[in-house]
Design a protein around this nucleic acid. Structure first.
Length: 279
DNA sequence: ACCGGAGCCTGTTAGC
DNA sequence: TGCTAACAGGCTCCGG
């Protein structure tokens, strides 16, 4: 489940592999993977562009390119649920290409970059201005723009459960199901509390908790449950530090109460009913 | 504006 | 054992 730490790990791993490399050709096996432009235009435009900038916004990877020394397009990749990116030497690429490999970029050093996605939810964009794709995203949780005042404003009058609101990318960008559950546990906030019910001290605690779990997630190179693997095929390690996520029926590490699982806004949600009270 | 639910996908697991 | 149904959770779209 790639969320902010997993995507950040991908961007950091991609930079040394791709920086300065040009795309000399491409193929698309599942058209819907390309969100924009059309597949034909994507193939025509990406050839001849060179990777120069590497960034992330929320769960989007931003791979900035240039053409003939001039500013080019940005290749945006969103992994959604099961997306993976791999770079292989030619002989290995031929062996590794399978029915889940939906996009192949051929690099000028002969290696192939694969976009692979079991469930086909992930998307790629090739755009001259990333802003159009990223327009609805809220602040970066690890940046200065994520403030108590702004967070309070976003949650005011919100009757929905805080768990669901944390998954809303226009409120804060990059938090997904794993890190939402872990942050709420760390902040001792019940996932069903309404957004508007949270007091300033709780918002403060929640912001800090979101930052702590995301930073630790990045340090551990992400959480590998069933699907997420890194560029080089290695797993992340943060799953070993999960306090509540997928720990249903196991004792809370703080108080020993058994961790419960409920469904909130169509998402499985894990929490300690003793440490995270409704108040 | 906000909220909840359907739909997109496929592999794995639970249950009959 | 073999089948089907439920589940996994990223996001967009739609109706109320």
């Amino acid at each position: 489940m790639p969320e902010l730490p997993e995507v950040e790990t991908y961007v950091r791993d991609l930079e040394p592999e791709l920086s300065g490399r040009s795309v000399i050709g491409a193929s698309v096996q599942w058209d819907r993977t390309i969100a924009a432009p059309s597949v034909g235009e994507f193939l025509a435009r990406i050839a001849g562009q060179r990777f120069v900038d590497f960034d992330r916004r929320g769960k989007y990877m931003l791979l900035g390119m240039e053409r003939d020394g001039n500013r080019g397009d940005t290749l945006i990749i969103h992994l959604r649920m099961t997306g993976e990116v791999h770079i292989y030497p030619l002989d290995e690429a031929i062996k590794m290409k399978d029915k889940h490999t939906h996009v192949v970029l051929i690099l000028d050093d002969g290696r192939h970059m694969h976009y692979r996605d079991q469930r086909k939810f992930g998307r790629l964009w090739l755009v001259d201005d990333p802003a159009q794709v990223l327009a609805r995203l809220g602040p970066e949780p690890l940046g200065e723009g994520f403030t108590v005042d702004g967070f309070a404003h976003s949650l005011a009058k919100r009757t929905a459960a805080i768990k669901g609101l944390l998954l809303n990318q226009s409120i804060v960008a990059g938090v997904g199901n794993i890190y939402a559950d872990e942050a709420l546990f760390l902040a001792s906030i019940h996932p069903l509390r309404s957004g508007s019910s949270l007091k300033p001290a709780e918002l403060d605690r929640l912001i800090e908790s979101i930052r702590v779990v995301l930073m630790r997630g990045i340090e551990m190179k992400g959480s590998s449950l069933q699907n997420y693997i890194r560029l080089d095929g290695m797993k992340g390690n943060f799953q070993e530090e999960h306090k509540v996520f997928r720990r249903t029926g196991q004792p809370c590490i703080t108080c020993g109460t058994l961790v419960e699982r409920i469904v909130v806004t169509q998402r499985s949600t894990h929490f300690c009913p003793t440490c995270q009270v409704m108040k």
